[in-house]
């Protein structure tokens, strides 16, 4: 008697749903939580089929679960992470959650009944909307974090670490599928003078402007990254030396003709660019390809800047220094 006196109010106050059904899926009991959220009365639905009262239930799926509970006399579970909800019930966070229905963790338990009595199953429904909301925030944050992890903070192009990783992958692809692959390394000419003249803010402004302008000149498959200071790199998949040189020439001319407005002053800049093509027989590492493009870049600077130089097979570090 005492148990009944205590249990009923506890069941009514419980912030979880309790539904008891028999082995023919007819409702025997449901608590106030389900009555309120489902907008129904136990007196009206008692004895009725669970699947008629809750018309939206995934019937085949749920029956298989309930059958295993009865046959094996062991519990079955369902998590909101796999199935966001089983019972379409509104939740208590209509403003802060993007989901319309209560995310649920459900446990289906066999209830011990006396022999020869009809077997019963208790379905416990816990509101997991808060966890669902947190999880959504977390996934969004992780996506942003991953993006931030790949980006150069100032110019928003790929940062060096990520860009080099991409270069390694592209080299791997080029080797595997015998595609061509080229690399452009370029440098802003006399960047130090720009900084002296317009201040560091001006220098930064030029880097941001040019990175965005050059990005707009590239194909979707080309990968632009900031290699360091005022040095950038472009990976050009499926592109031979000649094609890459054309792209570099186009960029070089476009930048030379491009004027930027900073604090009511017009700034112009030029680039020195080095181009190299990936040679599977010579370049064993991505560093080898970078070194070749860097040598060509050096030659572009040495021969007067604002120009494109291509790496010629056979050039060596020694050559570079000797000249």
């Amino acid at each position: 008697m005492f148990q009944e006196m205590v249990c009923n109010p506890v069941l009514a106050a419980l912030n979880s749903g309790v539904i008891v059904i028999d082995d023919e899926y007819n409702i025997r009991y449901l608590n106030a939580f389900i009555e309120r959220h489902g907008n129904l009365q136990l007196s009206e639905v008692a004895g009725k089929s669970l699947f008629n009262v809750f018309a939206d239930l995934p019937e085949a799926w749920l029956k298989r679960k309930l059958m295993s509970v009865l046959d094996l006399n062991s519990p079955a579970f369902s998590s909101w992470e796999q199935r966001q909800y089983i019972f379409k019930l509104p939740h208590l966070r209509p403003i802060t959650s993007s989901s319309q229905y209560m995310a649920q963790n459900c446990t289906m338990l066999p209830l011990a009944t006396a022999q020869h009595e009809q077997p019963l199953i208790c379905i416990l429904i816990e509101d997991a909307t808060d966890a669902f909301v947190y999880q959504q925030h977390l996934s969004r944050t992780l996506i942003e974090l991953e993006k931030a992890n790949r980006q150069d903070g100032l110019t928003k192009v790929q940062n060096r670490r990520y860009w080099e990783e991409q270069l390694k992958q592209e080299i791997h692809r080029a080797q595997r599928y015998q595609h061509s692959l080229s690399l452009i390394l370029f440098d802003l000419d006399k960047f130090k003078d720009l900084n002296d003249k317009y201040g560091h803010l001006g220098g930064d402004f030029v880097l941001v402007e040019l990175a965005s302008f050059i990005g707009s000149l590239l194909r979707d498959s080309d990968l632009l990254g900031r290699y360091g200071g005022e040095e950038f790199g472009i990976i050009l998949p499926d592109t031979g030396l000649e094609g890459a040189a054309e792209v570099a020439e186009r960029i070089c001319r476009a930048v030379a003709d491009y004027s930027m407005l900073f604090n009511q002053q017009t700034i112009r800049a030029t680039l020195s660019m080095g181009v190299a093509e990936f040679e599977p027989k010579q370049h064993f590492l991505h560093d080898d390809l970078i070194r070749c493009a860097d040598m060509a870049l050096y030659n572009a600077k040495r021969t007067g800047r604002n120009r494109v130089c291509c790496y010629q097979a056979g050039e060596t570090d020694y050559h570079k220094k000797a000249n």
């Binding site: 295993s68 094996l72 062991s74 079955a76 579970f77 369902s78 992470e81 796999q82 199935r83």
Partner: peptide, 12 residues
């Protein structure tokens, strides 16, 4: 989902 299949098997 594969995850649900795996948890069902293990739970049983």
């Amino acid at each position: 989902s594969e995850i649900e299949m795996l948890t069902d098997i293990s739970s049983i």
